[in-house]
Simulated assay, not measured.
Amino acid sequence: MLHYDINDQLQLRMFTIDDAEALFQLTMASKPYLREWLGWLDYTETVEDSRQNIEGRIKGLMETGGYPKSFAIVYQGELAGTIGFNDIDRGIKCGTVGYWLGQDFQGKGIMSQALETVIDYGFRDLKLDKIEIRVATGNVKSRALPERFGFLEEGVLRNAEWLYDRYVDHVVYGLLRNEWAH
């Protein structure tokens, strides 16, 4: 899946180098909002940082045999966020999904539709047997997504991430291929 039209307003597509400026602007516009749960934001200071991020995503194609690991979320023609597999373990056929959405795009059902598409993609195209999502225990909005799609809570990783001035625990959610009813 290089480009997927979810509906007439929402698409998932591969990032291109041309997205660097838009990704940087979206990140900066939403930084105070996103900073509560994303620890990498202070490492994004310039458009070049976003360009390097996109180059890394493109290089990830080799790891998956030509299938993209991550996607730009495009809503009404505008870059709204990103979703994809932060990690894929080929040995156990397990992928870990990560996602974020710009503040102005919240509350429109965008991420629910994007996640459903990525779950389908992971099981169908990437031939995964399990998909995981790891979320800070206090991130209630983000935790609602895997719970809505039938992921089971598998445990809590203590002090799993350093967020600027504190550690946060992560809830690990898992969904097996035979549990996905779509």
Rank of each mutant, 00 (worst) to 15 (best):
L10C: 11
L10A: 09
Q11N: 14
M14N: 06
M14H: 08
T16Y: 15
I17L: 15
A20V: 07
E21W: 08
A22C: 13
L23T: 04
T27E: 07
Y33A: 04
L34D: 05
W40P: 02
Y43E: 11
T44F: 12
T44M: 10
D49L: 04
N53I: 00
I54G: 03
I54R: 00
E55V: 13
R57P: 00
R57S: 07
I58V: 08
K59H: 14
T64H: 14
G65K: 08
G66Q: 08
P68Q: 09
P68R: 09
I73K: 00
Q76W: 05
L79K: 01
A80F: 12
G84V: 05
F85G: 06
N86R: 11
N86F: 14
D87Q: 12
I92W: 08
G95V: 03
G98K: 08
G102W: 05
Q103K: 14
Q106E: 15
G109E: 05
T117R: 09
G122I: 00
D125F: 12
D125N: 08
L128E: 04
L128S: 06
D129A: 09
I131M: 12
T137L: 11
G138S: 07
S142H: 10
A144R: 11
A144K: 11
L145S: 01
P146E: 00
E147I: 08
G150A: 01
F151K: 00
L152C: 08
E153Q: 07
